[in-house]
Design a protein around this nucleic acid. Structure first.
Lengths: 135, 135
DNA sequence: CGTTACGCTGACGTTAACGTCACCCTGTCT
DNA sequence: AGACAGGGTGACGTTAACGTCAGCGTAACG
């Protein structure tokens, strides 16, 4: 028996497994730990990343793609900690998440608008000389 | 008669007018010029920002909000230059804009997904102790 | 038992996108 | 004439988010 769970995900992962799984470098993971975004456990000196770390990393990378800073992200990550009772920390995370949601919705509206505009611009460009070569 | 146009926008603007209009600093505008994102004309030594500069600045700031780098942005700005004929430059901008469009559409899809998730998470948080104080 | 692979810890380097500072010019109000 | 606002030019400082490198430990492999 290896340490597996119902969803066939190992219980903990080494730093390299994490890197391969999420396409990041070891440096990045250590950096996130230093910034208290991740808290892998230690087996002697080595890091072992838990399911929780992986869930958080996923959220971190997503947040980054939306332009949030690591600090922004860190402050809202606690919201996702199931099992945490309604502490002040969590209350704060809730407030921040509300703001963040507003930002994301505004961003989506603007993004929709920008996409429409860009499409129109591309169409115009095609009307002029610009044609797509076979992709 | 002051230099006004049908849409009541002055023909050119000073650096300060630009800063007030777009909420950026003079340093930012000079920086963008150095990076060849803007090309204000000179009245003696002073910069005068044209309608074109303003259109570009608007696109630049928007692009930034979507997480594109200034360099990314610079390379696609030419697409929006009306009056330019179908040069190689413009062709290149067209290609880049296509890629950029794809990125933006992917981003929107992911954003939609993230919004749904975050909303659910907030709802759960409310089900527990977290209540919104009167905003 | 040497060495190769993987991991850890500092510590310093790097890039993007400006901020800040010192210093200079110029128009203009009093 | 003096003072002051507004703009301009280097040049150096700053922050975020890592990259890179040197040096060390140790576990496994041939």
């Amino acid at each position: 028996m290896t340490n597996q769970t119902p969803d066939s995900q190992p219980d903990v992962m080494t730093i390299r497994q994490m890197c391969d799984a999420f396409n990041v470098t070891p440096r990045t993971l250590r950096f996130y730990e230093a910034k208290e975004l991740l808290t892998p456990i230690r087996e002697g000196t080595r890091r072992l990343f838990t399911r929780r770390d992986r869930a958080r990393l996923k959220l971190i990378l997503r947040g980054k793609r939306f332009g949030f800073s690591l600090e922004d992200i860190r402050q809202t990550l606690d919201l996702y900690d199931r099992d945490r009772s309604a502490t002040a920390q969590r209350q704060r995370a809730y407030e921040l998440a509300l703001e963040r949601l507003a930002v994301m919705e505004a961003q989506r509206a603007e993004l929709d608008h920008a996409i429409v505009e860009l499409r129109a611009e591309l169409k115009d460009a095609e009307a002029m000389g610009c044609e797509r070569h076979a992709a």
